[in-house]
Amino acid sequence: MKKLDNYRSALRVLEQAPLQDRTNEFVQSGIIGKFSLQFELGWKLLKALLVYEGDQVSASGSPREIIKRAFRYFDGMDEEAWLSMLRDRNDMTHIYDAVRASALVERIVDDYIPVFQRLEAFVLERYASGELDELA
Protein backbone atom coordinates (compact mmCIF):
# COMPACT_ATOMS: atom_id res chain seq x y z
CA MET A 1 0.00 0.00 0.00
CA LYS A 2 1.54 3.25 -1.15
CA LYS A 3 0.08 5.28 1.75
CA LEU A 4 1.62 2.89 4.27
CA ASP A 5 4.95 2.91 2.42
CA ASN A 6 5.01 6.72 2.43
CA TYR A 7 4.04 6.81 6.10
CA ARG A 8 6.82 4.39 7.05
CA SER A 9 9.43 6.18 4.95
CA ALA A 10 8.62 9.58 6.46
CA LEU A 11 8.62 8.07 9.95
CA ARG A 12 12.19 6.80 9.47
CA VAL A 13 13.22 10.42 8.87
CA LEU A 14 11.26 11.83 11.83
CA GLU A 15 12.74 9.16 14.10
CA GLN A 16 16.09 10.91 13.66
CA ALA A 17 14.80 13.95 15.59
CA PRO A 18 16.02 12.79 19.02
CA LEU A 19 19.56 12.60 17.64
CA GLN A 20 19.59 16.21 16.42
CA ASP A 21 20.56 19.47 18.14
CA ARG A 22 17.07 20.46 19.22
CA THR A 23 18.27 23.82 20.53
CA ASN A 24 19.01 24.96 16.97
CA GLU A 25 16.11 26.97 15.49
CA PHE A 26 16.74 25.60 12.00
CA VAL A 27 16.65 22.03 13.32
CA GLN A 28 13.50 22.78 15.31
CA SER A 29 11.87 24.10 12.17
CA GLY A 30 12.80 20.93 10.32
CA ILE A 31 11.45 18.67 13.06
CA ILE A 32 8.19 20.60 13.17
CA GLY A 33 7.89 20.41 9.38
CA LYS A 34 8.55 16.66 9.40
CA PHE A 35 5.97 16.24 12.16
CA SER A 36 3.41 18.09 10.05
CA LEU A 37 4.10 15.81 7.09
CA GLN A 38 3.94 12.69 9.29
CA PHE A 39 0.63 13.76 10.77
CA GLU A 40 -0.84 14.34 7.29
CA LEU A 41 0.36 10.94 6.13
CA GLY A 42 -1.01 9.39 9.32
CA TRP A 43 -4.56 10.64 9.14
CA LYS A 44 -4.69 9.91 5.41
CA LEU A 45 -3.49 6.37 6.12
CA LEU A 46 -6.27 6.04 8.70
CA LYS A 47 -8.73 7.31 6.09
CA ALA A 48 -7.55 4.70 3.58
CA LEU A 49 -7.90 1.97 6.21
CA LEU A 50 -11.43 3.09 7.02
CA VAL A 51 -12.30 3.01 3.31
CA TYR A 52 -10.86 -0.50 3.15
CA GLU A 53 -12.98 -1.49 6.15
CA GLY A 54 -16.08 -0.08 4.39
CA ASP A 55 -16.70 2.84 6.72
CA GLN A 56 -18.76 5.70 5.26
CA VAL A 57 -17.37 8.43 7.56
CA SER A 58 -14.08 8.19 5.74
CA ALA A 59 -15.67 10.03 2.82
CA SER A 60 -15.99 13.21 4.93
CA GLY A 61 -12.34 14.10 4.58
CA SER A 62 -12.26 15.69 8.02
CA PRO A 63 -9.13 14.72 9.97
CA ARG A 64 -11.01 15.05 13.29
CA GLU A 65 -13.85 12.79 12.19
CA ILE A 66 -11.47 10.24 10.70
CA ILE A 67 -9.41 10.13 13.91
CA LYS A 68 -12.53 9.72 16.05
CA ARG A 69 -13.88 6.96 13.82
CA ALA A 70 -10.53 5.17 13.61
CA PHE A 71 -10.44 5.13 17.42
CA ARG A 72 -13.66 3.07 17.34
CA TYR A 73 -12.32 0.66 14.74
CA PHE A 74 -8.76 0.11 15.82
CA ASP A 75 -7.90 -1.13 19.31
CA GLY A 76 -4.98 0.55 20.96
CA MET A 77 -5.24 3.80 19.03
CA ASP A 78 -4.68 6.77 21.33
CA GLU A 79 -7.48 9.14 20.33
CA GLU A 80 -6.39 11.88 22.73
CA ALA A 81 -2.82 11.83 21.43
CA TRP A 82 -4.03 12.06 17.82
CA LEU A 83 -6.40 14.92 18.66
CA SER A 84 -3.56 16.65 20.50
CA MET A 85 -1.39 16.25 17.40
CA LEU A 86 -4.20 17.72 15.30
CA ARG A 87 -4.38 20.77 17.59
CA ASP A 88 -0.60 21.19 17.51
CA ARG A 89 -0.54 20.81 13.74
CA ASN A 90 -3.26 23.44 13.41
CA ASP A 91 -1.54 25.80 15.87
CA MET A 92 1.89 25.48 14.23
CA THR A 93 1.26 28.42 11.95
CA HIS A 94 0.89 30.61 15.02
CA ILE A 95 4.17 29.64 16.67
CA TYR A 96 6.42 32.66 16.44
CA ASP A 97 8.53 32.37 19.56
CA ALA A 98 11.36 30.02 20.38
CA VAL A 99 9.85 28.82 23.67
CA ARG A 100 6.67 27.50 22.03
CA ALA A 101 8.62 25.97 19.15
CA SER A 102 10.98 24.24 21.56
CA ALA A 103 8.05 22.90 23.60
CA LEU A 104 6.42 21.51 20.46
CA VAL A 105 9.65 19.83 19.39
CA GLU A 106 9.89 18.12 22.78
CA ARG A 107 6.26 16.90 22.51
CA ILE A 108 7.04 15.57 19.04
CA VAL A 109 10.07 13.65 20.29
CA ASP A 110 8.68 12.47 23.62
CA ASP A 111 5.00 11.92 22.83
CA TYR A 112 4.19 11.94 19.14
CA ILE A 113 6.91 9.83 17.54
CA PRO A 114 5.90 6.86 19.76
CA VAL A 115 2.26 7.34 18.69
CA PHE A 116 3.29 7.25 15.03
CA GLN A 117 5.36 4.13 15.71
CA ARG A 118 2.42 2.41 17.40
CA LEU A 119 0.21 3.07 14.39
CA GLU A 120 2.85 1.60 12.11
CA ALA A 121 3.18 -1.52 14.28
CA PHE A 122 -0.60 -1.90 14.52
CA VAL A 123 -1.14 -1.67 10.77
CA LEU A 124 1.68 -4.10 10.03
CA GLU A 125 0.28 -6.57 12.54
CA ARG A 126 -3.41 -6.26 11.64
CA TYR A 127 -2.88 -6.37 7.90
CA ALA A 128 0.10 -8.73 7.89
CA SER A 129 -1.32 -10.91 5.15
CA GLY A 130 -0.53 -8.25 2.56
CA GLU A 131 -4.20 -7.57 1.88
CA LEU A 132 -3.47 -3.82 1.71
CA ASP A 133 -1.27 -4.27 -1.36
CA GLU A 134 -4.34 -3.73 -3.50
CA LEU A 135 -4.95 -0.24 -2.12
CA ALA A 136 -3.34 2.80 -3.69
Rank of each mutant, 00 (worst) to 15 (best):
F71A: 12
Q16M: 08
D97V: 01
G33W: 03
E131F: 06
V115W: 01
R22W: 00
E80R: 10
G76T: 04
F71T: 04
L41F: 14
Q117W: 08
A136Y: 10
E120S: 15
L4A: 12
S9I: 01
D75W: 01
A136M: 12
V51L: 15
V105Y: 05
I108A: 07
L19R: 12
S102K: 08
F116Y: 14
L135F: 09
W82T: 02
E80H: 06
R100E: 09
E80K: 15
M85S: 05
L119T: 10
K68D: 05
F39Q: 07
F35E: 06
R100S: 12
S60E: 13
R100H: 08
R72T: 10
E106M: 12
D75E: 15
F35C: 10
R87V: 07
R69G: 01
V51W: 05
S60N: 12
K2Q: 12
R107F: 02
H94S: 02
V27W: 03
E134K: 15
S84W: 03
S29N: 15
S9N: 10
K44Y: 06
G61W: 05
D97N: 14
Q28C: 09
A103Q: 11
R69V: 03
E15N: 12
G54P: 12
Y96W: 06
R72N: 10
E80Q: 14
V99P: 00
K47V: 05
F26C: 00
V27S: 04
R126T: 15
L46P: 07
P63C: 06
S62G: 04
R107S: 13
G42V: 01
L11P: 05
I67H: 00
A81Q: 09
K68L: 03
A10P: 00
D111C: 06
S36R: 08
L132R: 08
V105H: 06
R8Q: 15
K34M: 15
V13T: 12
R64P: 01
L49S: 11
D97L: 02
R118F: 04
A17K: 02
L4T: 08
I31K: 04
L83E: 06
I67C: 00
E79C: 05
